[in-house]
Design a protein around this nucleic acid. Structure first.
Lengths: 340, 340
DNA sequence: CTGAAAGCGCTTACAG
DNA sequence: CTGAAAGCGCTTACAG
């Protein structure tokens, strides 16, 4: 298939130099005279030399590939992170291999193993839901640099890149308080969900700081939050004797389900009930009224994760301190609450 | 970093066999006795042998990597294609490297070169917009198996995997005719856009087949279709003396802009003006009324593209007939038109 | 059925 | 400043 591939050897022959010298010239080795370097580089260009990355990787025990495992590549927020990963990786001379775990822990394990087998230099992992058993991840972490992002776990001692969930939720709930809401419901997931718990903590903190008592009746949880669950839980809230005057949904999707139900029952948004989501995904400006939500800078998450991963790859002794990097989010105020 | 890596050599030593025999046993070579095979495989497993993919790829001039270049990884339809690619590639033992061209033709060229440099076995390319000069793609095609998908061009002689744009548009417009619409506008792109032209051809065909004369006044085109353009062109349509009674938008995003304007002017949908989009993206069920649209099976596109690419990779002489594979779409009828 | 040996294209410690 | 040579881990034509 490939023919007339230019190799170091051919360049060396044409120039009556040794392969070693050509290799060093191309790699800007200090021992080589600048004239030789120039000569070699010029010919390499003319002959359209492309280094054989496999020979190189093989020789150097380095692939310059980063493996990325996410649960679902079609989620918009995930794609913004992936874009950040691609950009930063490209800028640093790394390629990116992506695979999906489909929120299946066995598939996740399989993908981690495949990544190692494939010789990636490091792994960026967003945990699949329900990763309560982290043994496999720990085993991977022992073999290769690994960083968690987005869906993380405190049980895994490694660098983690996340958004400031708690603070973001605090901001969202405080915003509701600031516009005069006093009975703020939350629609969230059960306690094993890392992000959900962080956001709930922010909710609690905001209530506390503003001396609003917690009412368990308007704290609703589900296993796996989505549009349907948003609808179902909003129906529950509407059926209460004392309805909330605001609903904080920990995802935009749930918030959209929520708004659809409120509209169905002709509840005025935000006058009677205000709604806040989380993510600022594309739908949040399609729904009417447009959704007040938290913008998560996926791009920055991705870039930051790559940054720290390469740092670990370049750390020879592999003694890595586990730290958590929090990326700042922004509250975006739209028509489902009030401008202040 | 890596320590105690199991190699063929170590297995061979432990078993008092030669490296060749171990290699062949692991690869199920016919020459090796089944007892030896068993013995070797058992120990390989025990020793947690992972073949060094770089040595292998280096030796065999094969990377088992497929390169994918798309314009934008955050587009939902693109992600469904990517998912199909990932699934099929994994099933066939290939890894996938993804990069973005950001609809920039120079970046696209750069990415194609990087892919080659990186030693991928083949490339799956969705052309960036405005790829009018295809020289660079042709150059890549000369060096390596390459298949186009989604955004394709008749100027490039290679296998192309697309949806049946023309037929899909025909179905959409015929549906509008079937529900009694007689003055059907189209919102599209200028003629250099491959998909737009195909959809326009389907529009024309449906009109012709139902003896509806073409009225150029309700055929609106723009450079780069999006929500704002959808709004702008809908405003133009509403300002006409003879308003259309239906609008076929060649993307969902434009259709959503269209619906927003119609609602602003209190035009009843679908009674006064019906709207059809194209793509069935997530927003099409969020907007009210929900959008009638064409569902594009991205997953199948991705899988099919991988299928043909591997076929070409496995074709030794590289004599490839260029063919176009059309994947069937489905019209999904929702509230922006009538159920029939 | 098994082994010795060459070689894929590169980098680098060693020697000069 | 440059070169000869070893070696990364694997596969495979050749020999037996």
């Amino acid at each position: 298939m490939k023919k007339d591939v230019t190799t170091l050897k051919k360049i060396a022959e044409s120039l009556n130099l040794s392969i070693s010298t050509v290799s060093r010239a191309l790699n800007d080795h200090q021992d080589i005279s600048s004239q030789t370097k120039e000569k070699v580089k010029k010919l390499a260009k003319e002959m359209n030399y492309i280094p054989n990355i496999f020979a190189k990787g093989f020789r150097q025990h380095r692939s310059n590939i980063i493996g990325v495992v996410v649960s679902n590549v079609t989620h918009h927020y995930t794609t913004t992170i992936i874009r950040g990963i691609l950009e930063e990786a490209a800028a640093r001379g790394y390629r990116v291999i992506i695979s999906e775990s489909n929120n299946d822990i066995e598939k996740q394990t399989e993908m981690l193993n495949t990544m190692i087998q494939f010789g990636v230099d490091g792994i960026l992992l967003s945990l699949s839901k329900l990763t309560r058993d982290v043994d496999n991840v720990l085993r991977t972490l022992n073999r290769i640099p690994l960083i968690l992002f987005d869906k993380v776990s405190s049980k895994i001692p490694c660098t983690q890149v996340v958004i400031n969930d708690e603070e973001a939720a605090f901001d969202a709930v405080e915003h509701l308080i600031n516009i005069g809401k006093k009975r703020i419901a939350i629609i969230k997931e059960f306690e094993f969900s890392y992000n959900s718990e962080k956001r709930f903590a922010g909710y609690l903190k905001a209530l506390k700081q503003h001396n609003i008592p917690l009412d368990e009746k308007i704290v609703l949880s589900c296993e796996d939050i989505n549009l349907e669950e948003g609808k179902r839980m909003t129906n529950i809230l509407l059926s209460l004797k004392e309805r909330p005057d605001a609903i904080f949904c920990i995802t935009d999707t749930a918030a959209i389900g929520c708004i659809k139900v409120l509209k169905k029952f002709n509840v005025r948004i935000p006058e009677e009930i205000a709604v806040v989501g989380f993510s600022n995904n594309a739908n949040s400006t399609i729904i009417e009224p447009q959704l007040t939500t938290i913008d998560q800078p996926g791009n920055r998450i991705g870039k930051t994760a790559v940054h720290y991963l390469i740092e670990e790859i370049d750390t020879p002794n592999n003694v890595v301190t586990s730290k958590t990097i929090e990326i700042k989010t922004n509250l975006i105020i739209r028509d489902s609450t009030y401008k202040v």
